[in-house]
Amino acid sequence: MRMAWVLTVITACSSTTHDRPAPPGEPPAPHRIMVEANDVAILYPPGGAGIMAAELVPRALYERAFGSEGALQLGGTPAAPPLAALHLVAIRIDPQREQLRLVFQPAGERDDAVHVFFALDPGEARALAESVAALRGDAHLGPLAPHPLLVRDGVTGPFGRGLAAQIRRHAPAARLARITVFTSSGLGTAWNFFGVDVAAGGAITPMAIPTLPPDTRLEAFFAGFVDGELTGDAPFTPESTALPARDDLRILASRDRLARATPAARDQALAAAARIEDPRVHTPETIDCASCHVAHLVQTRGALDLHMFGYSHGRPSIQPRTIREVADSVAALNDPDLRSH
């Protein structure tokens, strides 16, 4: 219900095409294309964009970050996916952070993903979003979904070619700022999160994970071995000792802990999950990776889909938090007080 409401809001916002009326005596402002959700969050159809990570991420940098191909991570958790296997499946343009995020996933059965972040210059995210919006002309794309023009025309159609050119232009290796990795282990019951920050010049440092001890390099979530239930105990590794109660959803991630919890504790955990799903409350700088990725799962207890925007076992994955983030981006870009000119 809540998701449907958010989708409706996005659709309503993005279908509005008015600019602020010109003051009396002044000529009307020229027509501008209003940015829509699918202009700033572009999900390719299954099969991806035809753009490989190896084209945009230097192999040497990737190997400095995660080791040589096949190098297992902490505790024998899976290696980062091979760079050569990663296809671009989604794009996020974030005007609030002046950031371009490219989502790559390997073809095949592995439930892995690599997110690559590029720093944009001030105003560049807006320019990029408007360029993408201009590529679709007057078409209205509706709610967030696999991009309708890419679905209709394929990635080699006019929109797909124009979009690929824009991505290549705005994502040079010199602007790489962060790479995050998400791998699956436990025979599909556990997920491992880790990443690096990339400084200008290519220096790499392990990404700090909020609320976890400072030397933490990898966080894992374990769903447990019982199909259809969350029975991992402990579900989060390492367990945070710094989460305030208002942001602690952990009892929702464990069937047994939830069964023992008081109604008040359950309510507080549900409220925490809602806070974590709200981008106006939490960001990647304030909450740990796993809490954010499971916030929807622990409320719905549905399919084990931890992707925020991409594909999970071949099915599109668009989490409610992503929809909210995109709604905020669209609102910011279409705000007449913030728009350029």
């Binding site: 902490l74 505790g75 024998g76 958790t77 899976p78 282990s185 990898l218 894992a220």
Partner: peptide, 25 residues
């Protein structure tokens, strides 16, 4: 010998094959 050191709470996936006998961690 897999040369893998197991860490609390993390899951390592592996495969057993007749040629390799058992796996040591």
């Amino acid at each position: 010998d897999t040369h893998v050191t197991l860490v609390d709470g993390l899951w390592h996936d592996d495969t057993l094959t007749p040629e390799h006998g058992w796996n040591r961690y």
